[in-house]
Simulated assay, not measured.
Amino acid sequence: MPLEPQRYKYYKTQLSDLLQSATALIRTYYDALSCQAPQLNVQANRIWELSQRQRLVSGINEAAAATLLSACHDAYRPIYQFIDQQQKTVAEVAIVVADFERECQALTAELGPAVELKRCTLTEWSSWLAQALSVLQTQTKFLQLDSRSLLPTLVQSSAIKQFTQDLELTTHYKAKIVLGLAEALRRPELLPLSLAT
């Protein structure tokens, strides 16, 4: 059954606000990744270089080894801080996406089975948010795993290569995220007027 005007307005406002909040957080994540990835690659390569030098002097010159180990940790710190911040952003995205999905389910229950929502942009946005969240969660999980291999005493050249690779979103996912963010800036109509009485 169609929604009463006040219920229609509630869902329209609530869903639009949640979509804007989610896309703002996704944009924050994406912008941080785009801006900081080159510098993080530099830091990872610096860890590799310093760790190799540290291994050479370890057991021969303990003071130099300790200084190099300390420099490795200094180079590692921005990587750790970046991944930690990205994980916090993804956690916030997850909360907002869950709220968006909950409102979608409540709307569907209120409308009843007779009303078709499949052609509504709401369904498309729900799908886009779920996919974007999954991509960000996967990337941060891989980066977290990679970061464990960047510790000075463990780092191998393959770990640097893997970290650099995981810092880059695939072209397909990057395009989908950027397109969705651009669409969201236009504040799309999520609910057709036909749903209101």
Rank of each mutant, 00 (worst) to 15 (best):
A63I: 14
A66L: 11
Q20I: 03
A37W: 03
A24Y: 00
L69G: 15
R77Q: 15
R7M: 05
Q6D: 10
A22K: 00
R77L: 14
Y11D: 03
K12A: 12
P2Y: 10
A75M: 05
S70F: 07
Q14D: 10
I26V: 06
L3R: 03
A22T: 02
E4S: 09
H73D: 15
E49Y: 05
L69T: 14
R27S: 02
Y11T: 02
L25C: 00
A64N: 04
G59W: 03
L25H: 01
Y10L: 07
T13M: 11
S51P: 05
L69Y: 13
P5W: 09
A71N: 13
Q36C: 07
D17S: 12
H73E: 15
A63P: 00
S58V: 08
Y8R: 04
H73Y: 15
Y76L: 11
E49G: 02
I60D: 13
L50T: 06
S70C: 07
E4L: 07
Y10G: 02
Q14I: 08
V42E: 15
Y76P: 10
H73P: 00
D31F: 09
Q6E: 09
S70V: 03
R53S: 13
R7F: 04
Q39W: 12
E4Q: 10
Q52G: 15
A65G: 08
A64M: 08
A66D: 12
Y11E: 05
A32R: 07
A75E: 08
Y10R: 09
K9D: 07
A66V: 07
E62T: 15
L40M: 11
Q6F: 12
Q6V: 08
V42L: 11
Q43C: 13
I26E: 00
H73Q: 14
Y30H: 10
Y30D: 07
A71D: 15
R7H: 11
G59K: 00
V57M: 09
A24M: 04
Q14V: 11
L25I: 01
P38S: 10
L68E: 09
Q36F: 10
T13L: 13
I47C: 09
G59A: 09
L40F: 10
R7P: 07
E49K: 08
T23P: 00
L15K: 05
R53L: 14
L15T: 04
T13Q: 15
T13R: 14
C72K: 03
S70I: 03
Q52A: 04
L3K: 04
Y30W: 08
Q36P: 02
K9M: 04
Q39G: 14
R55H: 09
K12R: 15
S21C: 03
I60Y: 06
P38L: 08
Y11H: 08
